[in-house]
Design a protein around this nucleic acid. Structure first.
Lengths: 95, 95
DNA sequence: ATAAAGTAGTTTATAAAATAAACAAGTTTA
DNA sequence: TAAACTTGTTTATTTTATAAACTACTTTAT
């Protein structure tokens, strides 16, 4: 009847992050922060969860002397997102 | 870009409850418990939250000597659900 | 050269939510 | 009349989300 919702994706901020990365492939920390309107701390924590789950990859470099954190969606992240959407449908669509 | 997700509905159990009530109009506590596979305690707490929010009405009677708790969706609950689905679309659909 | 302000984050502490365990109040069955 | 069952509620615990505080370094102004 109701499929279990992937708890990693069933979070407003993590869902927004993954949603952005799905369409962009990759994005910078600061870009994600601006688009999601999250605080740095919250974003940092949620990115780490997504990374731990293998849904994104994080690479740290420098640009113009400043730290630059790049986040990239993985294949696992993409299919988890697609599954999550299917799970949601079991709640949204009657029957 | 991303609409805020109604936190009352952005919960696996509460979403399942409301989803069921949307199609049935009303349902008994025990029925909801069976369909959602929730524990009684969890169901009790979440029904109370939905009631407090005005999304459902709860009426308590007896049937065959046993307590009978009936839950009914309200107009407010219906429109909150519809809004929630719209909010979700801003995450799911690119653009 | 150095203090003040800014960038880009991380870590830790607090608040909120979900869940489970324990309890209540009765009913039925053996 | 005791044991087991029904239908829940309340309280305690765990998990999760969020915010506050901190780190580390850079740039700008003095």
């Amino acid at each position: 009847m109701f499929k279990d919702l992937n708890p990693i994706l069933h979070s407003q901020l993590r869902l927004a992050i993954v949603s952005l990365l799905i369409s962009l492939q990759e994005a910078e920390f600061t870009y994600l922060k601006e688009k999601t309107k999250a605080t740095s701390g919250n974003l940092s924590v949620q990115l780490d969860k997504l990374k731990t789950e293998g849904y994104i990859e994080i690479t740290k470099t420098f640009r113009n002397n400043y730290p630059l954190t790049m986040c990239k969606i993985t294949r696992k992240g993409i299919s988890a997102f697609e599954e999550y959407v299917e799970q949601l449908k079991s709640y949204i669509n009657p029957g």
